[in-house]
Simulated scan of single mutants.
Amino acid sequence: MKYMLLIYGDETALSESEREACYVESTQLAHEIKSNGQYLAANPLYPTALATSVRMREGKRLVTDGPFAETREQLGGYFLIDAGDLDEAIGIAARIPMARKGTVEIRPVIEIAGLPAD
Rank of each mutant, 00 (worst) to 15 (best):
V104C: 05
G102E: 03
R55S: 10
E25G: 01
A42D: 00
L5M: 12
V109I: 14
S26C: 14
E18K: 06
T103I: 13
I92G: 02
T64F: 04
E20R: 10
A83D: 12
A94T: 07
G84Q: 11
L80E: 11
S35K: 09
A69I: 13
K34Q: 10
A13K: 15
S15Y: 02
E73K: 09
A89G: 03
E88M: 07
G66V: 05
R55Q: 08
R95K: 14
K2A: 00
A51W: 02
D85M: 10
R57L: 13
R55T: 09
E70A: 11
E58I: 00
Y23P: 00
I7S: 01
A21K: 12
A21G: 13
G66A: 05
I106R: 04
D87G: 14
L62G: 00
A94P: 00
L6E: 13
Y39S: 01
E88K: 09
A93M: 06
I96G: 03
V24H: 02
I96N: 03
V63D: 04
I92M: 04
P67E: 08
P97G: 02
T27D: 03
E18I: 04
L50V: 07
G76W: 09
Q38N: 06
L40K: 02
S17N: 12
S53N: 07
R95C: 03
E25T: 05
R55W: 04
Y8K: 11
M98I: 15
K2E: 10
I106Q: 02
A49D: 10
T48K: 13
T48Y: 03
K60T: 10
D65K: 11
G9V: 06
Y39W: 13
E16V: 10
I96K: 02
A41E: 05
Y39F: 15
T48P: 02
G37S: 07
G76K: 11
I33E: 08
M98N: 11
I96Y: 03
V63Q: 07
D65H: 10
D10T: 15
I33D: 06
S53L: 00
L62T: 03
N36M: 12
Y78L: 08
Y3F: 15
G37I: 07
